[in-house]
Design a protein around this nucleic acid. Structure first.
Lengths: 357, 357
DNA sequence: ACGAACTATGAATCGAACT
DNA sequence: CAGTTCGATTCATAGTTCG
């Protein structure tokens, strides 16, 4: 049997190419498949500019059934090429992640965790019709229930301020210099941040391992694998993406093995909104708020808005309105009465922050 | 036909009880279904029978199939009892959420968002074999693709410090005084925090709406619904939970209606035609209107239309035309000059609306 | 040179009412 | 039901231009 060629990009259909790989050759599969978004019309921002959505042919499927069939086919091949203790990572959004998770379970994979990538800077919902779509979901699954997949628990903990790593991961989108551009425009519509792959590869593979990515795109998996001293095999149909990925990966220098442990650990103060004080029971709807000199009064509503004589809305807007000012910091302006004394509502925010740690 | 009895807890099997509820009676369903797969000591089917020999793929599949069958049955009934613009919330973890999401999509629900409840104080993974399981997933889905489910966008935004609410929600677990105890031990294994239900009910129902919860447990849904002036119907099999839930809900005082109602949506405000500003003398024919940067000018005509170089017609059409945009909100685009400053004509519309009260 | 102001953009199932 | 009109709607960053 000939040696399996590693650190290469195979051009072609994912399923066909996977079929040509031998059984039990891979330590990890990372897959970022088409999301099957089913976008209807165009979308413009409030300032009338056009939103560049994902309208590529590869994301079009005729039905859920067609999408399921496609996924079960490539997932089955991924399972075949995995070593007994191998594992799988997939990423998706609510459009497709439930189909993927169901297929993964049905095929006999064993889910280890689901992970949410919380985006620091997601695109807003421009029409105000839904919640901001601020996260994507990853599934980490072992080949079998009996598999003992690689999990570098202590590496991850050490890189996380010595706290056990959680299932919610906060990263920004892939933007700026990291984002591959062609003539100023994004080369790939859905390039993933290297930080995400860094954590996955560091945490669930060992140096020298083979990682297969059947939807290679611009090669984020390959770039991070090379930097961390892992091998990769990528598959993609698009010649343009392959060219860009090759160039990108060639420019990567592998880290010395002992350096391949650092993880970014951005720790920001969680943002607390006024509504959370009501939701958590620290303030009750109907309670009155006062300005420092009690000249102005507002009444708290259940949704975290407040109502004064002249206006209703957020603590900031109503604070501005009663003062006839252009703006106002409601956190310091409004006070509640406790034991006959006025306390700024900002003091309650610190209480929530403390409970959150 | 007899009136549907509300604010009650029905004892019995969820599916059987749902079947007795009439078509299209509910505004919202909230469901926190059991998932008794993959638990230590072997698998149990939803009907509590034990699954033998769960080590091979086939048995895993058969138990998933049983769970799927169970979920599709109660989800189909939920869809039947929902009004055309009704919606569904379900909550689950990686053990069951993918089955639920797939069933929801297959049954014709239309997903609005998935939401992650990020737990501030999750139980750690004691063995250090996986990531801390620090979140659960919720799915918010409308009955149909064409449904227009209730979404109190402005309420949620106002309570979130005037920033659009995102799909990741941070709350602590249900602990302390909120957690129902029996003899010092927790009464229910998965009691949900009231803060979570508070946000869901406030954001996606109106006062007076009917919320059905087919897995009522200790009645968090009922307690929050009552406090916020919504109606509920709960279903549970367990007499002990029902007793506890009844006692809990009885102790809840409803808020005053004005505190429980959402902020009014601009879309629901009475419509004012631009011509009314002229008729009421707030603006005179011949007055000039400007865009915010004074790059564009239009002249008001007596009939409430405006004229620019390139077009004549409504404030919206002309605004779109001068910007070369497909559409435009003339109320916020056009400004009039007063005391040397530009004011949006929308401020005049608010004056008229205030005068109507 | 430095900061303020302005512009660009990201996996998006993105309107409602009336004729 | 389709077509038309009214008019509601964005957050965090990165990069660029202007003062």
């Amino acid at each position: 049997m000939t040696e399996l060629k590693k650190d290469v990009i195979l051009k072609g259909d994912s399923i066909e190419r996977l079929k040509k790989l031998p059984d039990a050759c891979a330590d990890l599969v990372f897959a970022d498949p088409p999301y099957n978004l089913q976008l209807a019309g165009g979308l413009t921002r409030p300032n009338q500019t056009h939103v560049d959505g994902v309208t590529d042919d590869w994301d079009q499927f005729s039905s859920f059934a067609a999408y399921d069939e496609f996924c079960r086919a490539w997932l089955a091949e991924c399972r075949r090429i995995l070593k007994p203790d191998g594992a799988l990572w997939v990423i998706g959004s609510y459009h497709n992640i439930f189909r993927l998770g169901t297929a993964i379970q049905d095929l006999g994979f064993w889910i280890q965790n689901d992970v949410v990538w919380v985006k620091t800077n997601p695109m807003p919902n421009f029409k105000g019709t839904r919640l901001t779509n601020a996260h994507e979901t990853l599934i980490w699954a072992a080949r079998d229930q009996k598999s003992r997949p690689t999990f570098n628990y202590h590496s991850l903990k050490a890189g996380n301020d010595d706290v056990q790593l959680r299932s919610d991961w906060t990263f920004p989108l892939c933007t700026g210099r990291e984002r591959l551009k062609d003539d100023g425009k994004k080369l790939h519509p859905t390039q993933k941040p290297e930080a995400l792959l860094h954590r996955i590869i560091l945490g669930t593979t060992n140096p020298g391992d083979l990682i297969v990515d059947p939807f290679f795109g611009t090669g984020t998996t390959g770039a991070v694998a090379k930097r961390l001293g892992r091998h990769f095999i990528g598959i993609d149909q698009d010649a343009g993406y392959i060219t860009a990925a090759k160039k990108r990966i060639k420019a990567v220098s592998p880290l010395r093995e002992e350096d391949a442990v650092a993880l970014p650990s951005p720790r920001k103060q969680p943002r607390i909104a006024f509504g959370q004080l009501i939701e958590s029971g620290l303030l009750s709807p109907g309670t009155k708020l006062y300005c420092p000199k009690k000249r102005h009064v507002a009444r708290i509503k259940a949704d975290g808005s407040v109502a004064a004589d002249t206006a209703s809305g957020s603590i900031h807007k109503v604070g501005a309105s009663v003062q006839n000012a252009p703006s106002c910091n409601g956190w310091t302006f409004w006070h509640y009465e406790a034991a006959g004394k006025l306390q700024p509502i900002d003091s309650l925010r610190s209480m929530i922050r403390q409970g959150m740690n």
